[in-house]
Design a protein around this nucleic acid. Sequence first.
DNA 1: TTTATATTTAACCAATCGGTTAATTACAGA
DNA 2: TCTGTAATTAACCGATTGGTTAAATATAAA
Lengths: 118, 118
Amino acid sequence: MQDQLNLVFAALADPTRRAMLARLSEGEANVSDLAQPFLKTMSLPAVTKHLKVLENAGLVSKGRNAQWRPCTLNVEPLRDAVDWMEQYRIAWEDKLDRLDAYLKSKTQGTHHGRKKQN
Amino acid sequence: MQDQLNLVFAALADPTRRAMLARLSEGEANVSDLAQPFLKTMSLPAVTKHLKVLENAGLVSKGRNAQWRPCTLNVEPLRDAVDWMEQYRIAWEDKLDRLDAYLKSKTQGTHHGRKKQN
DNA sequence: TTTATATTTAACCAATCGGTTAATTACAGA
DNA sequence: TCTGTAATTAACCGATTGGTTAAATATAAA
């Protein structure tokens, strides 16, 4: 589904949502767990909405446990995003590698290592 | 810049813009070249706006040649997007690999090959 | 200087986004 | 059944998005 790809990229385009995914990559979390870091800057309903965006993109699944809603990371839709990038990887890889080589030559050992993908 | 990452993902969240990047991955193109596939469905100013989004994300550079504006793909900002994915790759990779194995077992030889990244 | 082509800008519009507050629903437990 | 906690829904709001048409700008060429 092409539409899914739109939703996934759009979901990733917000730092709050990326942070939520980062948190979920460390394991299951309830809505209030996910909300906690953001309650200084936004309300709980705002968090619920962000979560909804992630759910609609298929990136998060919500379970039920009493009054809690344990959320888990759902990795399949990222496949679409990865695939899209793969599709043009050959064309881009050369440029990226050249950039890498350039950066390495500039910063020498201080540049954090980046593996060649092949 | 975190903000750049927002712009890059947001830019990728639209199929018209992804198609433009795909076209540009094959080489330089003028605005009208880029617009051509879409003029059945939208106006030229709409294309100009999409191009602006790509420029603001740093993904496209526009040159000048007489009345033409030759556009080129600018790959560096994709680095941010790749980096973000890399950051959680370890946590996700296992799940992706397990999904891969599952899909392979389901579809056997018909599944298009997907290299293990390591 | 006029004309033709390439592209952008301005002004506008409806829909979506990211947030709010207030009210509501879902449960567990005393 | 009442209370407290977890989470969602509803109604609203201003800003942004993705499109439009009409006008303006940039440049080459007759």
